[in-house]
Design a protein around this nucleic acid. Structure first.
Length: 602
DNA sequence: AGAGATCCTG
DNA sequence: CAGGATCTCT
């Protein structure tokens, strides 16, 4: 009554329209990686051919095809292959990589023969990769078809490998360090290959699973869908999946192929750096490598499939934390092959989401220099995990609208909100890439999850801006949450509880003011020093690491005055006297900062 | 009927 | 903060 109720402008703040999406945040790097980097990486397409050419006339070399087959199959197996199989793969890398065979392609008359060999070998390598992507049955077939002679050759090669290892036990220091470096690189390469192979299968499985759910189970709702999910999967998989499956296999095979090209190129360049004398004992290098990597393989593989990536120490490249978070910093790290982390599933998934399956996996952080993020492994999507990280640097989180305490490490996860923003762009991409949208939908869905304590914390902070969020707002601001009826209700309930506490405090302090003899409503104010504010801040911002917006103080003051007036007018005798107040307060919601839209905000 | 808000209780 | 009851609104 005696309060000046805010008009519309009062809460249509200057923070921008809710739907004011900002495509440019993401777009530049998106385009860059999608269309430029793959081109660059394709220029390396003939690496395998070059490497094969170098070894083609090496009569003493073991049949590397067998090695490839063995190694690939070993890696394609779900980590249960024995160590000797894996080490044979290692030795293969070594056997091919040396570049000492200068004479190989030198003789002109050998060109035709060489070309034939080259083609044949390349075909075999590609075939192996296809086997990698193939079904377990096809794999078994290959195993079964392997002749006894071949098996024996492989065993002999392994023996030779170990034998040479023993002979080379006492290398010169320089040589040793060279090999160590090379081992390190090759080991990481092997890990990456292994990871990709694992991912290949997982992606295939997920693809099948999700595609069959696409228009049936998921839309029908969660609870009911779970049980029927498998039946639907069975029914639809046979009809729909083959084409998509094949295409996906091809795409991933292509990616793996290119990855291998890069691997060999790197290995080759490493060898080139060696002195001629060091290059000569080719097998010694391979044997050393073969031995030394054996022990680590099984251990290192164990975490390569985790979606939640362990975070290494934050590299504070720049001294100052950026004031404005860039979801995809343009910062590019130099190509440091030796220090690249293992290829994680999350990398693959993110890559697929951002660039689509037709893009080149060479743009992945572990392989290519063009990382469009500062922290290659900050891929965890969860608000939860980011909140955990924020505890480390929560001291930064003290200013209004300060986007992220993570600073340079700020990550949007899969940037689901951005994906929504980019509908137009994505559509054009999807036109060129029919599987893009499919990837986006299923990957984002796969990675969403239920509410966590960190979501609760985020919701409380959001309460400073909105007391009555709609379900749409909730969906917008919790992009990493898999919404269903239950989750939505829970979130709504949270805000209901927040309001309850809020209104209880208001009534309490209003009565207190009246009891204190305050006669004029203008005497009632809410500042950051107020007891009321402290109570509210303690409830919604317990850690006190969030700067409560001034607008919330205004709203609190208005609410308090509403209660004061109502109680003063003895309206509280009416059972529904609060409803009028609620009606006023619900109009005072303001815009939630954009930063809250990111799943990684805190 | 279902969603959402409040009230009450633990 | 969750669960249940009740009420309102569509």
């Amino acid at each position: 009554m005696n309060l000046n109720l805010p008009d519309q402008n009062m809460h249509s703040s200057s923070e921008g329209c809710l739907e004011d999406d900002k495509p440019e945040v993401m777009l530049p790097c998106f385009r860059r990686n999608m269309f430029e980097e793959p081109l660059a990486s394709f220029s390396n397409g003939s690496i395998i051919s070059q490497l094969l050419r170098k070894t083609i006339h090496n009569k003493r070399a073991l049949d590397d095809n067998h090695f490839y087959l063995s190694g690939s199959l070993a890696a394609a197996d779900s980590g249960q292959e024995d160590q000797s199989s894996i080490s044979s793969q290692d030795s293969t890398v070594e056997a091919v990589s040396p570049s000492e065979s200068v004479a190989a392609g030198a003789s002109p008359e050998g060109e035709h023969l060489l070309a034939d060999h080259l083609q044949a070998k390349r075909a075999r390598v590609e075939n192996i990769i296809r086997v990698m992507a193939g079904s377990p049955s096809s794999r078994q077939l290959c195993e079964g078809e392997r002749s006894d002679t071949e098996a024996r050759e492989i065993r002999e090669a392994r023996e030779s490998c170990r034998e040479n290892k023993r002979k080379q036990r006492l290398p010169q220091h320089q040589e040793h360090s060279t090999f160590n470096t090379k081992e390190e690189e090759c080991h990481k390469l092997k890990e990456q290959l292994h990871s990709m192979q694992m991912l290949l299968r997982q992606l295939q499985e997920k693809f099948l699973q999700v595609y069959s759910q696409e228009e049936t189970v998921y839309e029908a709702g969660d609870a009911a869908g779970v049980e029927s999910e498998h039946e639907i999967l069975k029914e639809s998989a046979d009809v729909k999946n083959p084409n998509f499956q094949e295409t996906l296999k091809q795409e991933l095979s292509k990616a793996v192929n290119d990855c291998i090209d890069r691997v060999f190129k790197k290995a080759s360049s490493t060898d080139t750096d060696m002195s001629p004398q060091q290059q000569t004992p080719v097998k010694s290098g391979s044997s050393e490598y073969c031995e030394s990597t054996k022990g680590q393989t099984s251990q290192d593989q164990t975490e390569a499939l985790s979606l939640v990536v362990r975070k290494p120490p934050v590299t504070q490249g720049s001294s100052v934390t950026p004031a404005v978070k860039r979801p995809y910093p343009m910062h590019q790290t130099p190509f440091q092959f030796s220090y690249t982390p293992p290829l994680h599933e999350s990398h693959i998934l993110e890559h697929l989401l951002k660039y689509g399956p037709h893009s080149n996996f060479g743009t992945l952080p572990c392989i290519a220099p063009s990382m469009d993020r500062t922290s290659p492994d900050s891929v965890d999507l969860s608000w939860d995990a980011m909140a955990m990280r924020s505890k480390v640097s929560s001291s930064h989180f003290s200013h209004h609208h300060r986007p992220s305490p993570m600073g340079a490490v700020a990550v949007d996860g899969l940037c689901l909100p951005h994906v929504k923003m980019e509908n137009g762009e994505l559509q054009s991409l999807a036109d060129r890439n029919p599987y893009m949208s499919l990837n986006i939908s299923f990957i984002s869905r796969e990675l969403k999850k239920s509410l966590t304590p960190s979501h609760l914390k985020k919701a409380k902070l959001m309460f400073f801006y909105t007391r009555y969020p709609s379900s749409n707002i909730l969906k917008t601001f919790f992009p990493d949450v898999k919404f269903n009826r239950c989750i939505t209700s829970q979130l709504i309930k949270w805000f209901s509880n927040f309001r309850e506490f809020y209104y209880i405090q208001m009534e309490k302090f209003a009565r207190q003011a009246i009891a204190e003899g305050i006669r004029d409503v203008k005497e009632i104010t809410v500042s950051r020093d107020s007891e009321l504010f402290r109570a509210l801040n303690m409830h919604y911002n317990k850690a006190n690491d969030f700067h409560v917006p001034d607008r919330f103080l205004e709203v609190a003051e208005i609410t308090l005055r509403e209660f004061y007036n109502a109680i003063s007018a003895a309206k509280d005798s009416d059972s529904s006297w609060k409803k009028a107040i609620y009606k006023v307060i619900c109009k005072l919601d303001s815009e939630i900062p954009e930063e809250f839209k990111t799943s990684s905000y805190l």
